[in-house]
Nucleic acid binder design. Structure first.
Length: 272
DNA sequence: GCTTACCTGTCG
DNA sequence: CGACAGGTAAGC
């Protein structure tokens, strides 16, 4: 479900709502959702801790506490939902994180892939959770660094590289296809064959697409909901993703193929 | 690299 | 019924 724009929309919503909140005792309806520490220690450790602010690297959301950091990754179908009172969605509820003022943050996840981690220090966060994660592609990667990283990763196809969170963090399957469309690059192109002008155009396209995704509240293709349960709107502005056999503005039909093991949409006429 | 596994649901 | 789905880790 969520790629960088969806996680950023949730971050922007939650930060003002949660700042200063004090945790009460969590309810782990599915203990295996907790990646670290063990579920009993997680439950015992959280009460009394205070939320300071919320950060994001790629698709990871980091809730900074007065002591430690609570990190969330939504994987495919995770949903962080803020509620003012005890009323809540029961279906797919995996973890309830109530606050002492009776509001709560609920973690719901149909497919159960997502995880929550509580770590005590930044070093532990890096070690336990963000070990293989590259720089955030929207906030921590300038054009020069992007070109430099590209020059060191010449093997393989451009789509596979953009999806690699160790290269740069944040792009997923939908936004990768949209970025390659905007930059006119075939997803099957080999990285080594890209001209510098193409790499620059790709970088600018990435920033533009991610900004637009955030501006329109993220993409709800199926399951994505923001922290208040509302749908995104960017699915109505996608150029290629999910649009097989529909018309590109150029008049050609959008095609679907498989690249890097993922369903891939592109315009055979606009992308070379 | 590619495939499989993790899960549940939907679509054809 | 099989194929596929916004993600990622682990296995050849």
């Amino acid at each position: 479900m969520p790629e960088l724009p969806e996680v950023e929309v949730i971050r922007r919503e939650l930060e003002p709502l949660l700042k200063g909140k004090v945790f009460a005792e969590p309810a782990l309806h599915m203990p295996s959702t907790i990646g670290h520490p063990n579920p009993d220690l997680f439950t015992a450790s959280l009460p009394g801790r205070i939320i300071k602010n919320i950060n994001r690297t790629g698709k990871y959301l980091m809730i900074k506490l007065d002591r430690g950091i609570l990190t969330v990754h939504l994987r495919m179908t995770g949903n962080l939902l803020y509620v003012e009172n005890s009323a809540f969605e029961k279906r797919f509820l995996r973890v309830s994180l109530p606050f002492i003022d009776c509001s709560a943050l609920h973690y719901l996840d149909m497919r159960r892939f997502g995880r929550l981690w509580l770590t005590e220090t930044e070093a532990e966060l890096k070690e336990m959770v963000l070990k293989r994660i590259g720089p955030d592609i929207l906030n921590d990667l300038c054009l020069e660094d992007f070109l430099e990283l590209l020059s060191r990763r010449q093997r393989g196809r451009i789509k596979a590289l953009l999806l690699d969170q160790g290269f740069a963090a944040g792009l997923g399957n939908i936004y990768t296809d949209e970025c390659l469309y905007r930059s006119g690059i075939d997803p099957n192109r080999r990285v080594q064959d890209l001209k510098e002008s193409e790499a620059e155009k790709l970088y600018q396209s990435i920033l533009g697409v991610l900004d637009d995704g955030i501006k329109y509240g993220g993409t709800t293709f199926r399951d994505y909901r923001n922290a208040r349960g509302a749908l995104g709107d960017f699915q109505n502005r996608l150029a290629v993703y999910g649009r097989k056999d529909e018309l590109c503005h150029c008049g050609a039909f959008i095609a679907k193929t498989k690249v890097a093991g993922r369903g891939t949409y592109y315009c055979p006429r606009c992308q070379k």
